[in-house]
Every structure is written in C-alpha cells, then in structure tokens.
C-alpha cells in the first residue's frame, strides 16, 4: 500500500487513534475488575444492601380451619 509523500501524517493519525481506543478499552476493563473485586470484598465481610438481604421469614400460615363434620 503506497501512502505517498504524506505517509507520516496518515500513520500518525491511525497510531493516535489506536492508542486512544486501546486506552479506553483498558480503562473500562480494569475499572470493571476493580469494582467487582471491591464489591466482592465488602459482601464477603457481610455488608449487604437492604434490597439484597433475604426477606424476613414470614410467620407460619395459620392452620386451615377444620370443618367439623358429622361423623
């Protein structure tokens, strides 16, 4: 591929774009690992959001009324 007399400008443009795109991907990936690890650490220590806590046990349903049948 012949890039002509201005090849340095073309190559520099693609190089800058590549560096920025790779940096964005790395930033998102590293941030995800970091936040996941922090969340797992906190949960391992027993800290939970209220919405993530198990619902309190409901009192047992009252026994169904027994129909008295004429025996």
């Amino acid at each position: 591929m012949d890039l002509g007399p201005h090849a340095v400008f073309i190559v520099a443009s693609y190089a800058v774009t590549l560096v920025i795109v790779v940096a964005l991907i790395a930033w998102v990936w590293i941030d995800h690992r970091r936040q996941s690890r922090l969340l797992a650490d906190l949960e391992a220590r027993g800290v939970r959001r209220r919405s993530a806590e198990p619902a309190p046990a409901r009192p047992a349903d009252p026994p169904a009324p027994v129909k008295e049948t004429a025996a």
């Binding site: 964005l24 991907i25 998102v28 990936w29 941030d31 995800h32 936040q35 996941s36 922090l38 969340l39 906190l42 949960e43 220590r45 800290v47 939970r48 959001r49």
Partner: peptide
C-alpha cells in the same frame, strides 16, 4: 459496547459506595 460496559462499572461503583456508607 464501551458505553454499556462503563455504565455497568458505574452501577457497581455506586453499589460499593452504598455498602461503604452502610458499613
């Protein structure tokens, strides 16, 4: 793709913040 992934990270970051406040 990057935006959705970054949004996921931000939701996780806010959960971490909430848990730290609770702690």
């Amino acid at each position: 793709a990057l935006h959705l992934a970054a949004m996921r990270n931000e939701v996780l970051r806010r959960r971490v913040r909430t848990l730290r406040l609770l702690q």
